[in-house]
Nucleic acid binder design. Sequence first.
DNA 1: CCCCCCCC
Length: 568
Amino acid sequence: MSHQLSAGSIKLLQTASPDDVTVFESQHTLQFLSIKRVGNTPNPTGATPPDRYRIIMSDGVHYMQAMLATQLNSLVQDNIIGKNTIALIDKLTCNYVQEKRLIIVLGLRVLQHSAEKIGDPQNLESSDTAEGAAGNQGSATSASTPTPIAKPVSVGTSSGMRQQAPPPKGRHGNIYPIEGLSPYQNNWTIKARVMQKSDIKTWSNARGEGKLFNVTLMDDSGEIRATGFNLAVDELYPKLEEGKVYYISKARVNLAKKKFSNVNNDYELSFERNTEVEECHEITNVPTIKYNFVPLNALEELNKDAICDVIGVVKEASPLSEITSTKQNRQIPKRDLTLVDKSGFSVRMTLWGKQAEQYNAAEPSPVIAFKGVKVGDFGGRSLSMYSSSTMHINPDIDECFALRGWYDSAGSDQTFKAHSIASGASSTFGFNRAEIRSFDEVKQTGFGMPDKPETFSARGTIMHIKSDNISYPACPTPSCNKKVIEMNGSWRCEKCDKSFPAPEHRYIMSMAVADYSGQAWLQGFNEVGIAVFGMTANELLETKDRNLSRTHIMRTLVFGMASRASNH
DNA sequence: CCCCCCCC
């Protein structure tokens, strides 16, 4: 296997304008000549910050230095990439740190883990930056002008000559990428959008009391959570608005406690007394909120406690109510919305605190986009907002317009399926328990993956129950259910290593069930038997002992019954 | 320095 490296890519990466997506979000086949761990010393708290990896990447003609985004560290640690690995790199970001271009690799796919070094690549950086660092500056550079990292070069593409983009300058100094922040840098400014702002929270515990708020900040390199305490709340809570872009500097960088946040960064910011925050009014390429919407019918494919984005029309909004949190011993305002979408499903979404109070229930059926909400299993599937979730009413996005049009023209007259308690198991075939399938349909689809159960619901009539072996004597220990054997007048369970005076009989029955499309043999266990016969297996056996004909009982009980059974 | 994300 041999791969052609993208000759010319290194020059492009060194010279393109930092926001040129045709370079930084397109594909480059490069070889990693070396991968080195850097700058990882324990911080004053004794905690060890995450590793950072510096890589040398080559296009066969030139090589350059870059950093690996920390979220890709596992690729190194798990030896998925190593020396001379050839990879297709499809997302990078370009930033400036102390006027030096810093390239961060954000996305890649390994093409070949181990390879021979290709070509005899030359260092593109050394001619300028190494000299600069050595104080041997060429005539073109001076202390007051940005050091060119590479001379503009023709790279032999249709784009021709590219101008070296100057590092962002001005009164905000060096704009750092969020991904590049660490406790060891101290003169940085980030330019970031507030993606989410929490309520002001107060606490009181053994260590004291106070108030705080959080924001999630994002730029094109990554995201980070920031927290302001007490005085910083007074100063910055009113200033920072969701959706706006700010220059932020002189905040403290701490190691994040990952288990308390799903923000993808190993660090967190703490707003301090001298932290500077200034709104950025220019038009920028700082990213806006990105959604990955899950249609409401697909919620059952997500696990309980999963975090997801949804968009839906508010079909109903409950009045504001309150719950008493037993855990925290306080009242918490809440409001339930019923969301619907084109999938024909409805789901309950719970808002808490300020979100619940401030929701304007007077507005008829708005479309709301939610980011980062929690999947619950109440009533099959439910949704609930975290303090880190966001909701946007009638957002200016295509999905919102589409839902609005659908609801106003058709959706508002439709009835919606609720998720049901029984639903939840995912199915390769997209069967879900809320929908009734015919036996023929199930048989046509087949039985899928070996060892993977398929779940479906059917409605049919029980045509026959095998009467020769309808129940077995089981161990009475709760949830043991193992078959017991009669020995010397008592019943012995081998699993529990115990004997009992009497067994608990449990149903194990085979039924022929038919619907309009065909017939199937279904095996039902105890719960099914109780549902079908309306009595326990013990009771059924007693009836039999009282000398009634079993066939007679069955005929009586089964006749006229609309039976349901589920099958795996 | 919080770190709870709740109830039915």
